Simulated assay, not measured.
Amino acid sequence: MDEVGTPDSSRIWDSASYADGKIVENSKEGFRQLLLNHFPDPDILLNKNRMPERAALAEDNLLPEAVLMSVSETYTGIAEKITGEKITLPEDPKAEIIAILAEQYDLIV
């Protein structure tokens, strides 16, 4: 089963731009295309039979912080449009996630 209606599974377009005849896509596609164009052999990222090579590629290549923040801004922007509220990022997101998993779900001891 896959998720529906998320930036990972769906193409979310800006309605005002769409009304003007322009498609402004808010999804993971920009990041996906960046990765496919960045590496000399994009088949590693597309071919599920090459998972060991994909894992090595991930271990050997750090993504620039600007790229990661751009992806984060895409998702945050979508969430803000859906909820109508400003998303405030925590000072230490990793610590917050760990605390929630431990305190609310008993998944971390």
Rank of each mutant, 00 (worst) to 15 (best):
I44F: 06
E103R: 13
P52M: 09
S70L: 10
K94L: 14
N61F: 11
R50G: 03
M51F: 12
T83E: 06
P40W: 01
A99Q: 12
E59M: 12
A102H: 13
M51I: 14
A55F: 13
I44L: 03
T83W: 11
M51W: 11
A58D: 07
R54K: 13
R54Q: 07
S70F: 06
T74A: 04
P90L: 09
A66M: 04
K81E: 10
P42S: 03
D92H: 15
K86V: 15
N61I: 13
I97R: 08
A66D: 07
S72A: 09
E73W: 08
I82E: 05
L63G: 06
R54F: 09
S72Q: 11
E73K: 10
P42C: 02
E73P: 00
G77H: 01
L63K: 08
R50D: 03
P52I: 07
Q104G: 09
A95N: 08
D41L: 07
D60A: 14
T74Y: 03
F39G: 07
L46W: 01
V67Q: 01
P64D: 13
D43F: 04
E91M: 11
E85S: 07
E53T: 03
E96K: 15
E91A: 15
P52K: 04
T76I: 12
A66P: 00
I87G: 03
A66K: 08
L101M: 15
E103M: 00
L63I: 10
L68W: 03
E85N: 09
N47K: 10
A102V: 01
I44P: 02
P64S: 10
T74R: 07
P93K: 06
G77S: 02
N49H: 13
R54Y: 09
S72R: 12
I87H: 05
I44K: 04
A56P: 01
K94Y: 11
Y75T: 02
V71D: 02
E53K: 05
L89H: 09
P64W: 10
S70A: 14
L57A: 05
L89R: 15
D41I: 11
A79H: 10
L68K: 12
G84T: 00
T88W: 11
D43P: 00
A56M: 13
D60S: 14
D92M: 07
K86A: 12
T74W: 02
L45E: 02
S70I: 01
E73S: 10
E80Y: 10
I44W: 06
A56C: 08
L68F: 04
L45V: 12
P40Q: 04
T83P: 04
I97Y: 09
E65G: 02
M51A: 09
I87C: 12
A66W: 05
D60K: 14
E91F: 08
R50V: 08
T74D: 05
A55P: 00
V67N: 01
V71G: 01
I98D: 11
T76H: 01
V71E: 04
I98M: 14
P40L: 02
E53H: 06
A99M: 06
K86M: 12
A102M: 08
R50L: 14
I78Q: 04
L46A: 03
A102C: 07
M69T: 08
I78N: 04
V67D: 04
I78R: 02
